[in-house]
Nucleic acid binder design. Structure first.
Lengths: 221, 221
DNA sequence: AAAAATTTTTAGGTTTGTCTAAATTTTAAA
DNA sequence: TTTAAAATTTAGACAAACCTAAAAATTTTT
């Protein structure tokens, strides 16, 4: 029940790829971890022998129940530290990810549970990603991207799926953040850009930006 | 200017041995790091080639100016995290050291400076050890052990040089902690135990315990 | 000052995680 | 349905950090 930093990074990367893309390939994993496909294969054998994933050569792999459980705890550590860095140390939104990459490998369960308690059991990190609880359970909201939000439906921003400095800049300028309430007024067919209403102001955003902003709303029954 | 966890642990251990014992030997270092003398020699060659220490085979070694500087920064990280764990996460005094051993290797300078600021630039960790500032400077108090404290001289507990659970237990029971004011009333020649006065109470402590409690006082001119 | 004991270093291995280059296997194209 | 392309795995090496056992240097004893 104790893993190397490398093993943890692989488990986490597989978990994220599985979530986002559905499948995980050797090349995609190598790309994500900035390493070579051969190294990935080596590690797959190791994680397979530890029963953390299902692996059949040439046919891909996926996390076992055990592997997923561990990945969730790594994600929990990562996101709690992100929350701490943002909320307590006042780091910018785009800086926290890198720092949390290191902190997430400090693995004392007691430490993380205390941190969680100190932070008030937050359910979402600064980008809106859900933080697994101490049983590994994730609170799942029915989030949709701004592109899919029906017209005139008031919704709340829950998550932003791009954490770059550039993204932070544009969002700050347009006064959009986690928790912002808005509604879609218009779709332009020419470039698929969108016109929003935020607190009686009209704001225009590109398709590219809308794609990365996720919201929830109460469907009007 | 980037070191492995192993290199950092060696630098820190050499620093502490140098402080406490004056000299550092291969065996002592191996003992402290729970490793073998042969491994120590390997690492000494490596650190020597990086100019972090002065090393002449068979004649011992000592940190170079550069090595000492780095060691001080590792100590800074360690003690700031200890302070955080104790002050914010409410860990017991004897638990913080182990956890800080992991956290100290998260090395972003910016992170540590922010943490320092968040904690209010503490000068001493929970055991009373001084925390180097962001220039590596240590605030040095003229501490003496309780054994050396003159009679009837009111002094303040500044440091406890043993961080075990057992030590915590006895100190809590006798209501002694960092900041406690006390004076020595009597030395017993039979077993060298000491009688103290703390807030109008009389407290007796063994020589062994007194040895590990350090205090400061204003010499009555 | 020679012998014995201790300390330190060298020599040669092991494991982990990485790499390159070559060989397989699978998938896509002709 | 062969051939070409792409993806994946194997084979063989390498660096870091450790190990054991043996050799060398130093220190202590006699």
């Amino acid at each position: 029940m104790n893993f190397t930093i490398s093993e943890e990074n692989y488990l986490k990367a597989i978990f994220h790829l599985q979530e986002k893309e559905g499948t995980v390939t050797t090349n995609a994993l190598a790309e994500k971890l900035q390493t070579k496909p051969a190294s990935v294969t080596d590690m797959m054998k190791k994680l397979n022998s530890k029963k953390l994933l299902h692996y059949k050569p040439y046919y891909g792999f996926s996390l076992s129940a055990e592997g997923k459980k561990i990945a969730l705890f790594i994600v929990r550590r990562h996101r709690l530290w992100e929350y701490f860095l943002s909320e307590k140390l006042k780091f910018d939104w785009n800086e926290v990810h890198m720092l949390a990459e290191e902190l997430e490998h400090v693995s004392s369960k007691q430490l993380i549970d205390r941190l969680d308690q100190y932070l008030g059991h937050p359910q979402f990190d600064p980008h809106g990603d859900p933080i697994p609880d101490n049983k590994g359970k994730i609170k799942n909201l029915n989030k949709i991207s701004l592109l899919e939000l029906p017209f005139h439906q008031i919704a709340e921003v829950r998550q932003v799926t791009n954490q770059s400095k550039e993204m932070l800049e544009i969002l700050e300028h347009k006064h959009i953040g986690i928790g912002t309430k808005l509604e879609v007024k218009k779709h332009f067919h020419f470039d698929h850009s969108i016109e929003l209403k935020i607190k009686n102001n009209t704001v225009n955003i590109s398709e590219q930006l809308a794609q990365n902003i996720f919201v929830t709303y109460e469907p009007t029954a």
